[in-house]
Amino acid sequence: MATRIPLPLILLTVAVYIFLVGPLIIILGAAVSDTTYLTFPPQGFTLHWFQRIFEIGAFRRTIVTSLQLACLATALALVIGIPAAYALNRYRIQLPTWLSTVFVLPILVPEIVLGFSLLKSVAVGASLPIFPTLLIGHTLLVLPYAVRVISASLASFDFSIEEAAISLGSPPSRTFFTIVLPNVRSGVIAAFILAFITSINDVSTSLFLTGPGISTLPIQILAHVEQFFDPVIASVSVLLMLLTVAVMAIVERTLGLTFLTK
């Protein structure tokens, strides 16, 4: 049904979208500007600043660290989060209600508090090296996506299908992989993507767990901005945006974008 939308509302929407997209276009412009300072609209055109990223050791190292962290944390969160989500849905009656609250805690506790607490208790208190501590922090950060998104998928899964498979002679463990998992595929993909993106962009949790020896890309960007105000930052930002574009293309291919509003 087409309800007519009043013109002022349409104008406001246009303005909001200019507000949302404009700054990203400005970064894009600034990244290709042939100047030593950040400016928009770009003056000239160069891809020099993209090359420059990889000439700076700190960026090279942190890009690698961030990718490693995001992959490992996401994988770990899925490996422990999927069984947890399955248990919460399949064995609901067996398990106490507070158990599902446990997996809300990482959302409820401010990230910055989590980072600081991990520094105090784990990195310093238990003298765990920085990288494992970071990995624990990131896994905790993305675990809610694994548990909650996949839980949402499982909630609409009809477990009698699983029982049917078992009654036909398929052992429970195999049934999980051949029957349950394929049916919550979209949930797993969504969880994977949200977790990966969250990890790669994280500042607050990593903030306390980095130092001169090891750092993540967003923290490195933050440090770089405070010292130099050159187009390298814009080009790194564009690099991160390209990663986002790639991820959104995967989402679009596999799930369609509407799932994001659910």
Partner: peptide
């Protein structure tokens, strides 16, 4: 009988050991 618990255990342990306890400590 406790299969549900076992499946949820790793994730629960992670949250309790590395989130609940450290934050409680803070």
């Amino acid at each position: 009988r406790h299969i549900g618990w076992w499946l949820a255990l790793p994730a629960t342990l992670l949250v309790v050991l590395f989130l609940v306890l450290p934050v409680a400590g803070t």
